[in-house]
Amino acid sequence: MDSRIIKKKLTTLTEHSTAQFGTMTPHHMVEHLSLTVKIAYKIKWPEFEPSEKQLKQKEMLLHTAMDFPKGLQAPGTNGTPLPLKYATLTEAKEQLLKSIEEYNDFFRTNPGELTMHPQLGWLSFAEWEKFHLKHFKHHFEQFGL
Rank of each mutant, 00 (worst) to 15 (best):
E49F: 03
L33I: 07
K38E: 15
K44S: 13
F143W: 05
W128S: 12
E47T: 11
H132L: 14
H135W: 09
H27N: 00
T11L: 08
D2S: 13
E113M: 10
K93E: 04
K7V: 00
T23F: 04
L55K: 09
L89V: 09
K56E: 01
Q119V: 03
K9Q: 15
G79C: 06
Q142P: 10
S99N: 09
N78P: 04
D67S: 09
N104L: 11
L62W: 02
H32M: 14
L72E: 09
M116G: 00
Q142C: 12
F21K: 08
E113G: 00
K98R: 07
Q142A: 10
P75W: 02
K93R: 04
H138E: 09
T12F: 04
T23C: 06
Y103H: 15
G112Y: 05
E113D: 06
P75I: 01
H27T: 01
L13H: 13
A126F: 10
H139I: 09
L62G: 02
A40R: 05
H32D: 13
A74T: 13
Y103V: 05
L82I: 10
L33E: 01
K8L: 12
Y41P: 05
K44D: 06
S99A: 12
F125N: 15
L61R: 06
T80S: 00
H16V: 05
L55C: 07
G121D: 03
W128R: 05
K130A: 15
K137I: 08
F136C: 08
H135G: 14
Q95D: 06
I43S: 07
A126T: 13
D105N: 14
H16G: 05
P69D: 03
G121W: 01
F48E: 03
H135M: 10
G22W: 03
S124D: 08
S51D: 01
E113W: 00
G121L: 01
L145M: 14
N78T: 03
L13T: 14
T109Q: 11
L114I: 00
D105V: 06
S99E: 12
D2G: 15
H32F: 11
M1Q: 13
L55F: 03
H139L: 08
Q54F: 00
K42G: 07
I43M: 06
P50M: 00
Y103W: 11
K56H: 01
T109W: 02
H132F: 15
A126R: 13
K134C: 14
T23Q: 10
K134E: 09
G22H: 09
G22M: 02
A74K: 11
W45R: 11
Q54Y: 01
A74C: 08
L61S: 08
R4D: 14
H139P: 12
K70A: 05
E127V: 08
G71N: 10
M116F: 02
L123P: 12
I6G: 03
